[in-house]
Design a binder for these strands. Structure first.
Lengths: 146, 146
DNA sequence: CCTTGACCTCAAGTTGACTTGAAGTAGTAC
DNA sequence: GTACTACTTCAAGTCAACTTGAGGTCAAGG
């Protein structure tokens, strides 16, 4: 059993964030010693998972919908697959942006927005509207209209 | 020349966001007809670039530091390369998360956090601490401690 | 000429994800 | 038993990225 400062230190998060995550139902403390929270070591895995989800652009609510407070995936397997699909889209975009940045760093063209290679990369990155719409509204939440 | 509603419609963004982006110096209107903004069509490319950057987890300020209001990359080529490198890290994590989600959707293990395959994917996703630290602090801003 | 509607500005409000601060509590060390 | 310290709660504050609302402007149509 770990107390909050140990979890904080190992996860690289402030204790306040851990309390906030618990309040939101993303993690659970397994008990108290006196008034102090105790966490099972598995919470570190859960926090890693949450960090991953945040890096993927999912909101805390979305992450909460994918995994319960014990870190187990929720039963809606289709949602998990949809999330994975939307990650694919994100990954394709990010790859294009990475390539675009690398290209921009060495390209001599006076205007990058007119450089054919740069534009091709951007087009790749944005060639998703159909795929995204065709599948309904299961996006990662960071794209699309309000 | 496009007026704001046309840009809004084509970019899939509300006009308020376009005004906000202009105020932040991310885009420029090329003039006014009376009191109304006019935009050159190239603004659509810039907006695509901004959307890409946002999807990559960059803040508007970071995007503003990478590209000027005309959409041209700023001269600090090393920064562009650093951003690209940090995108590589992000992409690796997201790929692992995507695989993890796909696996979770079909795996029968009672606890995923104990499923060896799931853990292996997560480990891949998180095996960056060294790489990230070794390169200094050129991250995308979404990772690391405050 | 007058109205209409799409734009404008500027200030204030919203949301998500936390952080901070004040005031309280409880194991441990002396 | 008192002090210390690491925790606790709860309310309020912060920050980014927008959004909303009130009141103003202006070109075009009738």
């Amino acid at each position: 059993m770990l107390d909050i400062s140990e979890v904080a230190q190992r996860a690289g998060l402030p204790a306040s964030t851990l309390r906030y995550y618990e309040e939101k139902g993303l993690i659970m403390s397994t008990g108290r010693r006196g008034i102090k929270r105790l966490f099972a070591p598995v919470v570190l895995d859960q926090l890693a998972l949450i960090a991953l989800g945040r890096a993927a652009g999912f909101s805390l609510d979305e992450i909460g919908a994918m995994f319960d407070a014990r870190g187990e995936p929720q039963i809606d397997r289709q949602t998990l697959v949809d999330r994975a699909d939307s990650l694919d889209v994100t990954i394709r975009r990010l790859s294009a942006m990475r390539d675009g940045l690398r290209h921009a760093a060495k390209c001599q063209a006076p205007s990058h927005l007119e450089c054919p290679q740069f534009r091709r990369l951007m087009t790749v990155a944005l060639a998703r509207k159909k795929g995204e719409k065709a599948r309904g509204s299961a996006g990662a939440g960071r794209f699309g209209k309000p």
